[in-house]
């Protein structure tokens, strides 16, 4: 593809790009990174790269959207941020990912602790099928040592309300999580992730199975959460990226091509490959 070759002949430096070993946060004015990856590479087996040498910051209490064609490594990158690749056989992660300055891949770091701080909502809804709706949301809280029924009840209601599910399930909290519709299941998973109040929330196409109304309300929720939580969201919907995110990173064939403030990347992308993709998807 000729556009790729063009892209490699970089004319002007992007805000951040692949192989930029020490991206300086000050180049995006005044933002502090909550997470930062350094040549993060994930390989499936010996030959397939999921992502390759991705170095990018994730800014504190900002919403970062990841965009790019199917198979470009968005999910792979997201999962690398909370060590979800650990148990996959034949998956090799190299490079570093810092959370508050500490490399989460350093020996001695407990992935369980990382995952309690960095939560995740998956591309496909994954409720715990044998647990009730109530228990689905509670599981993480109980783990955090909360036992008082009144506290749990309140937290469950809050999480379910935030995830725009409360009204639909308030009379059937005891029925199993698997009995909900696909879109309801996805909102249950969002509630479950919210309940434990993670510091960073990774969302992989969280609204792809939702109707426009629920999508809109989840987008509003994401905006509200920004007060306390750092969010990374994968989306195939450019309008959504525009609406919700502060920063947008464009991924292409396993590489992070460009990261910039969202208005900038959509109005004046610095990388030809980004421009090509955006135009391709818009026209």
């Amino acid at each position: 593809m000729s556009s790729v070759e063009q892209g490699q002949a970089v004319q002007s430096a992007p805000a951040y790009h692949t192989n930029d070993r020490h991206p300086a946060p000050e180049r995006i004015s005044g933002e502090a990174p909550r997470m930062q990856t350094d040549n993060l590479t994930v390989r499936y087996g010996v030959s397939t790269f999921g992502i390759r040498d991705v170095s990018m910051p994730v800014f504190d209490r900002r919403i970062t959207a990841l965009i790019g064609p199917s198979g470009c490594g968005k999910s792979t990158f997201l999962r690398a941020l909370n060590r979800m690749h650990d148990l996959g056989a034949d998956i090799e992660v190299s490079g570093a990912a810092y959370l508050d300055g500490e490399n989460i891949y350093q020996p001695g770091v407990d992935p369980v602790v990382v995952r309690r701080r960095v939560g995740m909502v998956f591309q496909k809804p994954t409720p715990f099928p044998t647990k009730s709706i109530y228990e689905n949301v509670c599981t993480g809280l109980r783990l955090a040592g909360i036992r008082r029924k009144s506290v749990l009840d309140e937290a469950v209601q809050k999480a379910l309300s935030d995830a725009v599910l409360w009204d639909e399930v308030k009379d059937r909290l005891k029925s199993p999580g698997g009995s909900l519709s696909g879109g309801q299941q996805q909102r249950l998973c969002i509630a479950r992730a919210l309940a434990v109040e993670p510091e960073v929330l990774l969302m992989d196409e969280p609204t792809s199975s939702l109707d426009p109304n629920a999508t809109m309300r989840i987008e509003q929720l994401i905006q509200q959460l920004k007060q306390q939580v750092t969010i990374v969201i994968v989306t195939h919907n450019m309008q959504q990226a525009k609406r919700v995110s502060d920063y947008t990173a464009f991924f292409y064939v396993g590489e992070m091509v460009e990261l910039a403030p969202t208005p900038e990347i959509f109005s004046s992308p610095k990388q030809p490959r980004t421009a090509e993709y955006l135009h391709g998807t818009f026209s």
Binding site: V112, V113, R116, G119, T126, F128, G140, L143, A193
Partner: peptide
Amino acid sequence: WSLREAGLALGLPRWKVTMSL
């Protein structure tokens, strides 16, 4: 496999994922 991942992503330790999910 996604069931295990969902549990792990919540910060459940592996034994707990096995036993309770």
